[in-house]
């Protein structure tokens, strides 16, 4: 379906965030999306490393900024 959009105010930005590891992988996905959405619209992301001692997931992401 074609969306007729205003594309004139858009930029992409690379960010890194840390997420506290939740109980399940599915909950981790939701937690990552929720955190990324505080920075912009998630476009591409992955957990790239895990700090097992601190129970933290390192996430690298590209988000869309609407300025």
């Amino acid at each position: 379906m074609v969306q007729v959009c205003n594309h004139s105010r858009m930029a992409t930005q690379f960010i890194t965030v840390e997420i506290a590891l939740p109980d399940s992988p599915a909950a981790l996905r939701q937690a990552v999306l929720a955190e990324l959405q505080t920075h912009g619209e998630p476009l591409r992301w992955a957990v790239t490393a895990v700090d097992s001692a601190g129970q933290l997931a390192q996430v690298e992401a590209i988000v869309i900024l609407s300025t």
Binding site: R9, F14, T48, Q58
Partner: peptide, 16 residues
């Protein structure tokens, strides 16, 4: 660009 993990990424200046 290359991220700290070693993964590559990039942007385009004119997504519009």
């Amino acid at each position: 660009r290359t991220a700290r993990s070693g993964a590559t990424w990039g942007t385009i200046q004119r997504p519009d």
